[in-house]
Design a protein around this nucleic acid. Structure first.
Lengths: 215, 215, 215, 215
DNA sequence: AATGAATGAGGTTTCATTCAT
DNA sequence: GATGAATGAAACCTCATTCAT
């Protein structure tokens, strides 16, 4: 019930509070909670949510944004520390990247819902902002990749990052299952899809980078 | 209103009728139509839909399945016709695959909604069936790839197919935008995301295969 | 829970059932009840209401329409029975009309809300239909008035009916008060507004008709 | 943020400031604006509105009051200048009155919402005050009418004024339409309702006065 | 006095699914 | 078998008003 005008810090904190609540609920159910649930989990009134977010979908997007930029920051570090030789670089990145991804367990579930949600009831500017952040991250990572004598012409670095992220997202969606199903997969002839996502990701990213760096 | 028992053919035809209607509606709106809309477009009553599908999401999944198996069938052909040498094979597949994909314009929009829907209100067996079909297709394509003296051990062929599909799906999701946004992308600093999907897909798949075949 | 397809009669009956409920609630509170209240008063589910009316405002309008056409029908009778001489006709109509009006006690409260509601969330065609009914009634009554040797040129009869209805509606609004206030009006210097609506209406309509017929 | 106590002038000025803002917004949209909109248009905080008005509806009523008393003042002038002979007086008033009314274009839209709002969430004393003002105006105008040898007994003058206002309000409501509809009225069989309000008002008021003065 | 954050009731509408006929 | 009426749970969002600072 803070009444005085909020300054920017307080406003941000309130926002975080809601995001934390939404995040926790999403993690528990893997479904986007209702605004009422978020509000009550955050201990505020329903109407107050709309002070920080103008749409339920905006909350969703902010969640995704947070996780994604966290991953991107780590990726930047990995890129800067990469060995010069192509084969080693490919392998090193694949492993480091997969390890980083493991730290953001909700990122992929969230990303998997993005497209279904993105066109639905999201103010255009919110989406622009989201995509802009994405674009900037890709560009920065791409440039880091290009500097350092690698075989990239201008922009190809960002391409590789984009493809890596795409591969990640797609692979996760292909291998994702409701928990209920997991134990029976072997007996159902689904061995081929019963892979450890992380292992598979390393292999795939490794191949992608090997190919991209071998020009 | 009493109707004679439907035989299997009639039952299958009814099912196709509904799928055609649902498909047409989805193509037009890119949103999953309501059961009422599907029923009316197919010329049957709402309740009758539930004789063919036990859940709305099942309809969605069947649609995806159809498109996907169409693509897979074409991919099989491409694989069988692939040159032996790795670099040529990589390039040939990338192009042929992208061309095939263009023939299933609704496949990726559908696939992009799968995860958001998959865990929600879908009978387990429907999902098992879907995933089984997927697994079989991957396996068959993988085996085709393995036969012919390529550098694959058992199962690696299917891996590559899986990764290719994942990359496709992920890339599409990363590059998809509401039409409203498309024209302004250059001015918004989103050049990096304003790519032609098909071009980008060819590049990425080419790299992935080059890497995978270069072991 | 009637399940079979409703025929027109049943559909009309369902509609009436809802209107009766809405009417009763309006009479009790003089406020437009919520859809939930109407539904529960009619013993149906909220969603079922939208089977008969596409908007809450449509319910309101239908209520008004019913009352209004009832009044109009009676007015037609009065008009046909009117003496030919102007002064007598004016007086006779004023009295008969006021008496008829008393039989539709909710008509004016409803009419008083029309303008505030009419432009808000009402499908255009619903409004067109309402106004068309109004126009037809006025026209018919006007023609009845014109036939019979009265001093009207084509259309003036409808004019007088329109003016009469306008005067009625306006007068009611000017003299309407919350019950809470009624007893204190004398002491508040509001004698001039503490009139008996019916009496006042008779006087006013009498004057209007006398003037209109005295050309 | 502490502010010095406002004296009466400042208080009145603040009130006017809010009313001007509310008026401008209402004129633009023909809907009662939200408190937030009024406040922001007036350049004050939402909470401050409640220092001048205890309810949103009070703002609305004050607006109506202002317009109405403006009209009444002009009507008084017309009445004082009226010719003595009944037929001439009736005609002169009808024209002068309609012309005056045109100077208050928001008066009737506001009046048309009064009843829907009046009983809802308005402190009794606000309503008493409003009605008292109305009563006084009617009485004054009525007395002006009575003085000057016209055929009125005590109070009948006010009656005529009341009836005139009623007729005005009612007629406006009967002839008011959403702009969207206006152009199509001829083709919809609504000719009878597609009248010019001002013309119609002159005719009706003329008839009413002719009748009232012809006793 | 002024502010504007917080409140939270309240309202409309949609839609997947059921099931009596 | 087919039908479509009925259901009723959600869900989102608005907004007048309060009140701590």
């Amino acid at each position: 019930m803070a009444r005085p005008t909020l300054n920017d810090d307080e406003r941000a904190e309130r926002r975080q509070q809601l995001l934390r609540a939404a995040h926790a609920l999403f993690r528990a159910t893997r479904e986007l909670p209702s605004v009422a649930e978020i509000a009550s989990a955050a201990g505020v009134a329903k109407g107050s949510v709309y002070r920080s977010f103008s749409t339920k979908e905006e909350i969703f997007l902010a969640l995704l944004e947070d996780s994604f930029s966290g991953l991107l920051a780590q990726a930047m570090e990995h890129i800067k520390a990469l060995p010069l030789a192509a084969p080693e670089a490919a392998e090193a990145f694949a492993h480091a990247y997969a390890d980083s991804l493991a730290q953001f367990p909700d990122l992929l579930p969230l990303a998997g819902m993005t497209n279904a949600i993105l066109e639905k009831n999201l103010p255009l500017d919110a989406m622009v902002q989201f995509k802009t952040g994405l674009a900037e991250g890709l560009k920065a990572a791409g440039e880091a990749l290009e500097s350092g004598g690698r075989p990239f012409s201008r922009g190809n670095g960002a391409d590789l990052i984009l493809h890596t992220w795409s591969l990640t997202m797609g692979l996760w969606q292909a291998l994702d299952y409701p928990c209920a199903l997991r134990p029976q997969m072997q007996s159902l002839g689904l061995q081929i899809l019963d892979r450890d996502f992380m292992t598979e990701l390393r292999i795939a990213v490794h191949a992608l980078w090997r190919g991209a760096l071998s020009v």
